[in-house]
């Protein structure tokens, strides 16, 4: 990169500066929220908190951690995420493997039919009635089974399986290995990065379950974290506006921010692992045939 004109150098600098500023707007809101959640109420009401806690305290968290309904929702989330990811991985991997095999005769129409569902979402009311007719309404399964397979994740896995060398599989089959054994003992061990990507995608989707909960869940003891959190934030049930007394080490603002941080921590915790894989996964998913 020699002989660059002054204009190009200036453009390059402003590009770097603009990108850095934009990247900061991606995390500054989170930092502001975290700072408020660890600050004393007087500092928050006096607008003294920006990106660093003022008069550091953990009282908001202590109060929240004593709420049993929040823990209950956390439990619902853990169950939905673990059971859901297991269910999704099982069905997705098996279907993706079949669709990756050239001897599976109906693979072309099936793949087309699946891509169709990527473009057109299921219509809300008939979807709701289907779940109702299946007897899933207001059960924890309504947050798991209807989101079972993501067409996008399925295509990622299928593309990955196709890219694997076919020779080992053929050799194994000549030695009397069944399709299932070939998948289990040969294909899956070779596909760990793709499986990790898809598994993490599923886990994050289940952790963030909201649409299916709003649509299908009525009883508050089945509320997942996102719905419970919304109850706290918009305070429809007056859970936290009742505690707006002076002298307490927390107020509705600090509590709301603490709830947000509480629900985000698991995502931030898996983010480094996610990031290791997802760029590659995204690129696989977009390979056109």
């Amino acid at each position: 990169m020699k002989n660059r004109s002054i204009g190009e150098i200036a453009a390059s600098y402003s590009n770097h500066i603009l990108l850095t500023l934009a990247a900061f707007t991606m995390i500054l809101p989170f930092i502001n929220v975290i700072a408020i959640s660890f600050s004393m109420p007087w500092a928050v009401s006096a607008n003294k908190v920006t990106f660093w806690p003022v008069d550091f305290t953990m009282e908001s968290y202590k109060y929240l951690l004593s709420k049993s309904d929040l823990w209950r929702s956390m439990g619902v989330n853990v169950f939905v995420t673990v059971a859901g990811t297991a269910f999704s991985m099982l069905t997705t991997v098996m279907l993706a493997y079949s669709l990756s095999r050239p001897e599976f005769m109906i693979r072309k129409p099936v793949v087309l039919g699946i891509i169709f569902t990527m473009i057109f979402q299921p219509p809300m009311i008939p979807y709701f009635l289907t779940i109702k007719n299946l007897g899933l309404l207001d059960t924890v399964w309504a947050m798991i089974i209807p989101s079972g397979i993501s067409a996008f994740n399925l295509i990622i896995l299928r593309t990955f399986f196709i890219q694997l060398s076919n020779e080992i599989q053929e050799a194994a089959k000549i030695d009397g290995c069944s399709d299932f054994r070939a998948m289990w003992n040969i294909v899956l061990p070779l596909s760990k990065p793709a499986l990790a990507t898809v598994g993490l995608f599923y886990a994050v989707t289940y952790w963030n379950v909201f649409y299916h909960a709003v649509l299908f869940i009525r009883s508050s003891d089945l509320y997942p974290l996102q719905v419970k959190m919304r109850e706290y934030i918009s305070d429809t049930e007056n859970i936290i506006s009742g505690i707006n007394k002076t002298g307490l080490p927390y107020n509705p603002d600090t509590l709301k921010m603490a709830v947000l941080v509480f629900a985000t921590i698991p995502i931030i915790a898996v983010y480094p692992f996610l990031q290791k894989y997802f760029v590659h996964g995204m690129t696989l998913g977009s390979v056109k045939e």
Binding site: L90, M94, L95, S98, R101, F104, I149, L154, D179, F180
Partner: peptide, 9 residues
């Protein structure tokens, strides 16, 4: 076996 594996999905 392939069809059986694809069936649930």
């Amino acid at each position: 076996i392939l069809y059986a594996m694809a069936f649930p999905g």
